[in-house]
């Protein structure tokens, strides 16, 4: 007598070509979601770095009074500012450094005759930075005329950009999740139509709706998890490549990737599987109502 199989066969028939298409779509969606997540982390880090730099600096343009050279006015201003609480360092910018700042705009033209502005670079105490108003008050008290730029305008811009990136990533996430849900619901529907006879026999031999829905849930959760792993793995590989090729700091200052950012891909296969379970269950339970 022949032996019965050790493991019972899968109750739902397989369709390799249809499953392959679904694998592909879910893997691509997961890949894109992972890249977006890693990109968002890097963008966030960049924004934080910029705002830290910006917050820690101020520039003062000194206007010399009559009978005073620009250089001496700047030196006096630097001395005054260095004594303000919340300032860790203040130094007059030497003429050649100021010229260097102008070079990109002026090219090779001789700058000797040009009234190059007299600048004082101020580094603020990162723990308790002095405000622009503090600096202004100190200058007025010491009788120095100057225009204080505390870089607030830039900070606002950077923070706006960071908020924009975060919002875009959340929108992207919702969109990918909805797309994955829709594609799995669609696959469940076609899968159920193809397996109509099988589902009907299960139903007529006393299977509960839960049992039948469970078969589809397990099938699509497994499929989504596997394709999710492929997508996440590919995204991690791409991110690692970007980091390695972009030098030690990643696509340096623009997109500073850290190795730990790659961990952002890890929850996505689970998210894909969860979406699959929900989509498959809702679809199956609805379609099963058609059976008496």
């Amino acid at each position: 007598m022949s032996q019965p199989p050790l493991r019972p066969g899968s109750l739902l028939p397989r369709n390799r070509s249809r499953d392959f298409a679904l694998h592909f779509v879910v893997a691509v969606l997961c890949f894109l979601a992972c890249l977006a997540a890693v990109g968002a982390l890097a963008a966030d880090r960049a924004a934080q770095g910029w705002s830290r730099d910006i917050r820690g600096e101020a520039t003062v343009q000194v206007i010399p009074r009559s009978g005073e050279t620009g250089a001496s006015a700047a030196a006096r201003a630097a001395e005054v500012l260095a004594g303000v609480r919340g300032v860790s360092e203040a130094a007059a910018l030497e003429r050649d450094k100021a010229e260097a700042l102008l070079r990109p705009w002026l090219g090779d033209a001789p700058l000797d005759d040009l009234p190059v502005p007299h600048l004082v670079a101020v580094r603020l105490d990162p723990a308790h930075p002095a405000s622009g108003a503090d600096l202004r008050r100190a200058l007025t008290a010491a009788g120095v005329d100057g225009i204080v730029d505390d870089h607030d305008r830039w900070l606002e811009g950077v923070e706006q950009a960071a908020t924009g990136v975060r919002a875009a990533v959340i929108a992207l996430f919702l969109l990918m999740t909805a797309a994955a849900g829709a594609v799995i619901a669609f696959a469940t529907r076609t899968g159920m139509a193809a397996a109509h006879d099988v589902v009907e026999v299960l139903h007529l031999t006393g299977a509960r709706d839960d049992f039948i829905a469970g078969l589809f849930q397990v099938r699509y959760a497994r499929l989504a998890a596997v394709s999710g792993l492929w997508g996440a793995g590919a995204a991690a590989a791409v991110a690692a490549l970007v980091k390695v090729l972009g030098g030690g700091d990643g696509l340096t200052p623009a997109l500073p990737l850290a190795w730990s950012d790659l961990l952002a891909v890890s929850p996505w296969p689970l998210v894909a599987a969860t979406v699959a379970v929900v989509a498959a269950r809702l679809t199956t339970m609805r379609l099963l109502r058609e059976f008496e």
Binding site: P5, L11, L202, T205, A207
Partner: peptide, 16 residues
């Protein structure tokens, strides 16, 4: 069910 063995076909109501 054509995708299941004779054994699994008979076992179906029990599995269900």
């Amino acid at each position: 069910l054509d995708h299941l063995t004779a054994f699994d076909n008979v076992a179906l109501p029990l599995r269900v």
